[in-house]
């Protein structure tokens, strides 16, 4: 059995490739001409490297993808744009997904795992405290969100269209915020970063985090689990901290984080005021803070991983305390 991995040189991808090699799978990695292979080689290790076939193929090249897919039974599609303008993210996420899926349909792959994002849920309409699970609705107005979320929602839509139209055996994994060595632990789910200052928004909201090794294990399972086609799995760890608890842990660990606090009742009114000013001033300040985005980002919700645990099956082996310690110890700086 062999697998094809896109985004293999990335933070999550290289750990996934190692796991697949440990399972004895031959792994084909599609990389861009500009990709640095060395971190992948180090993550996989010399002993397992012989089973890795690195191919330089642009995902926009449908024929190149088709050729690389020959003999591959499972596709793990991790490659995606993480930052930039909406058009850049679409160029790096949506269009390549279309091409890769078309190639996968014609190559007759047996399983296509798409790594999406927990951000695709439309949590604006959910009451605070709601349990967010796989039955929660996907954001119906993703263009009102940030460019990354917009691109991930459309990328998923493209994948589901291929599943429905062509019967591509699709499994979608929606990880929360992936933390790990080199990435730090503070994310936009905690609050807004203003230079060296972290402005905590509320603080009682649980953080949907997953440690990179735990996440890689879940993604691996998504490609191997039986009767998983057509299903979605949210991936978050157990014992998730709140934003306030996380900042306290950081301080306790000696990582000086300068933070300010916006009490929860003020978050939406302040976002509304900013949004009003953005419109009134005809965009003198960018429209990055809106009530819609704020509600999606900082609403207190409960995150669960029951379906992934039962269906993949999977268990986050690294507990949060250890994940936090590892992320903090090896990371050059928090954040």
């Amino acid at each position: 059995m062999s697998a094809l991995v896109t985004g293999a040189t990335g933070f999550l991808g290289r750990r996934l490739v190692r796991l697949l090699r440990e399972d004895g799978l031959q792994v084909t990695c599609l990389v861009r001409p500009s990709s640095d292979i060395e971190p992948l080689r180090q993550a996989v290790g010399d002993a397992l490297w012989s089973g890795v076939d690195v191919r330089t193929v642009e995902l926009m090249d449908e024929n190149g993808c088709r050729e690389a897919l020959l003999g591959c039974s499972v596709v793990y599609h991790l490659a995606a744009g993480l930052s930039g303008s909406t058009s850049t993210l679409f160029l790096n996420s949506v269009i390549p997904t279309r091409r890769l899926m078309a190639a996968s349909v014609s190559a007759g792959v047996q399983r296509f795992v798409l790594v999406s994002s927990l951000g695709v849920y439309g949590t604006q309409t959910l009451p605070p405290g709601t349990v967010l699970d796989e039955r929660s609705p996907v954001d119906p107005h993703p263009h009102l969100r940030d460019p990354y979320t917009f691109s991930k929602v459309v990328q998923e839509r493209v994948a589901w269209d291929a599943y429905k139209a062509s019967g591509l055996p699709l499994v979608v994994v929606r990880p929360g915020v992936i933390i790990g060595p080199g990435r730090g632990v503070l994310s936009s789910r905690v609050g807004l970063r203003l230079g060296p200052l972290m402005v905590r928004m509320g603080g009682g909201q649980q953080l949907p985090y997953t440690y990179v090794d735990n996440c890689a294990a879940a993604v691996r399972q998504a490609g191997l689990a039986e009767r998983a086609e057509g299903q979605v799995f949210n991936v978050v760890d157990d014992d998730l901290p709140t934003a306030k608890e996380l900042l306290r842990l950081c301080r306790k660990a000696g990582a000086g984080v300068k933070s300010a606090w916006v009490p929860r009742p003020l978050v939406q009114p302040l976002a509304g005021a900013y949004e009003w000013y953005h419109h009134w001033s005809r965009g003198q300040l960018p429209g990055v803070i809106t009530r819609y985005r704020t509600a999606a980002m900082w609403k207190p919700l409960q995150y669960v991983n029951d379906k992934a645990k039962a269906g993949l099956p999977w268990r986050p082996e690294v507990p949060f305390d250890e994940a936090f310690r590892r992320s903090l110890t090896i990371a050059p700086a928090i954040g």
Binding site: T86, F90, H143, V154
Partner: peptide, 12 residues
């Protein structure tokens, strides 16, 4: 030429 591009611009 990419309908996805045109759609995202139209939506936003």
């Amino acid at each position: 030429v990419h309908q996805d591009f045109a759609d995202q611009a139209a939506a936003r």
